[in-house]
Design a protein around this nucleic acid. Sequence first.
DNA 1: TCTCAAATGCTAAGAGGTTTACAATTGGTT
DNA 2: AACCAATTGTAAACCTCTTAGCATTTGAGA
Lengths: 235, 235
Amino acid sequence: MLRGLQLVESSHFSRSTFAAAGFVTALPEDVRRRLLNLGLVRQFAKGELIQQRGDPGKEFWHIRSGNVQIGRYSFDGKLSIFAVLGPGESFGEQAFLGEFPRMVDAIAGNEVTLVRIGEKELQSAISSDPRVARILLKTMAHMVQQAFALVNAGRNLSTVERVARALLGLCEGEGHTVSIPITQQELADLVGVSRVSLGKALGKLEQSGNIERNYGEIVVLNPLLSRRRHHSATL
Amino acid sequence: MLRGLQLVESSHFSRSTFAAAGFVTALPEDVRRRLLNLGLVRQFAKGELIQQRGDPGKEFWHIRSGNVQIGRYSFDGKLSIFAVLGPGESFGEQAFLGEFPRMVDAIAGNEVTLVRIGEKELQSAISSDPRVARILLKTMAHMVQQAFALVNAGRNLSTVERVARALLGLCEGEGHTVSIPITQQELADLVGVSRVSLGKALGKLEQSGNIERNYGEIVVLNPLLSRRRHHSATL
DNA sequence: TCTCAAATGCTAAGAGGTTTACAATTGGTT
DNA sequence: AACCAATTGTAAACCTCTTAGCATTTGAGA
C-alpha cells in the first residue's frame, strides 16, 4: 500500500550519482578551510556552462553559493537535468580523480560562486596533512558502496518506488513543496522505464497525495516528510 | 541473435564488485614493491576462513599465490561464491578504506599466500611517495565509474546478456574451458532473476554452444573468446 | 545398492513493463 | 484569436519475468 514518500535514502539518487556531498564536507574543519583557500574562486552567471560532457576533467568544483544543474544536453540542444546541487556540495570529483572525460554537463542554475580545486591544490592538500589522503579514500570507498547499493535497490524496488526516489533525489534537500521542471519522458529515461509505465507510477503517487502532475513539471508536495537513513521503504 | 559470449567487459562483474584487480597493480613498480614489503605475509590452508562477513575491516589483502573464494555463507552454512581471485589481485579494500564491516566472506580456495596491508602500511606508503595517494584515488574513482556502468548495464541488457556477463566474471581471466561450481539458484540470486528465468537463459547459452549445464556446475567453454573493452555487446 | 535430499527441468497462471498508436491537453507563436 | 508543436493521457497487443507446483535427475551417504 502506498503510504507516502517515506523512503530509504541512505543516499540521494542524484547526489550519489553525480556528486559527492561529503567529498569536501567530510574533511576536518581546518583541512577543509585550507583546501578551499588554495582554490581559485570563480563566478558564473545564470545559464553559463561550467563543464561540458567530453572534455577532460582537470578539476572539481565546490559550491560556495548558488546552485548548479547537473545534466545532459541532448543532440537537439535540450537539457535533461539529473540533479541540482547547492552550497557546500561539490561535483566533478569523479572525472577529475579518475582522469577520464566528464560524463555530464554542469550549468549555473543562478548566479553561482565556485571554488576550483585542481591537481595542484589536491596534491598540496594531500601532502600538507597525512589525514587528508586517508579521508578522501574513505569518502571514495563510501561512494563505491553507495553505487552498489543502487544496483541492488534497482533490482528489488518496484517502479513506483524507484520513481519516488528519483523525485526525492531531484528535490535535493529542499524543505517544502518543490516544483521540478522535467518532462515525463525525461524522468522516464532517468529512472529507466517507458513513459507509459512512468505515467502509471506518477498516477499512483498523485493519488496518494505525494505529487502533482503539471505540463512539463512535477510538484513534490512534502519531500522532507520523514526522509531517513538506513531504513527500508514504507512504500 | 545469439552469436557468442562476446561481451562488453569494461568491468568484470565480480572483480568490480568485491575486489579491485588494479588496486595494487596500478601502483608504479617501485612503490608497489615497497608497499608489499611492508606488509605481513600470511599463509592460509585450503578452506581456511580469511575474513568473515560483519567483522571490522582493519586490513586488505594482496594475493601472492593461490586463489581466494569470495562469497557468502548462508544461514545453513553453505557458501555462495561470487568470485574467485588469483595472484596479483587484492580484496577487502572497500571495507578497509571505508571503515565499515566486511560484506563478504573470503575463504582460501587452496594453499594461499597473502600479504596483509593495514592502516600502518597504507599510511607509510602514502607518506613515502606523493604519487601513491593520487593513484589510489584514481583507482577508487574507476571503481565508482564501473559501479555505475553496472547500473546502466542492468537496465539495458537482456537477461541472457546479464547471465553471460556474470559467468564471464566468475571465470576470472582463465583462458580455456572453465568449470564453475555453482547451483542455478545461486547464480540466479547473483544475477538477480528467478531460477526459472535463469534456466531459460542458460538453455539459450547452451544451445549456442557457450556453456554446458551439469549438476551443480556450469562449464564455460571459451570464456576468453573476444573479451574486449568499451564495446557494445554482440550478443 | 538403495535411499533421499538437493538440484534441475518443465508447465501454467498472473503480474507488470514495453511498444505502438491515437486522442486530448497545454503553452507558446503567428 | 488561431494555430501548432510538444506534452500528456489512454488503450490494446505483446513480451518477459515471477510465482507456484510438480516431475525428474543427480550424487552422496547409509
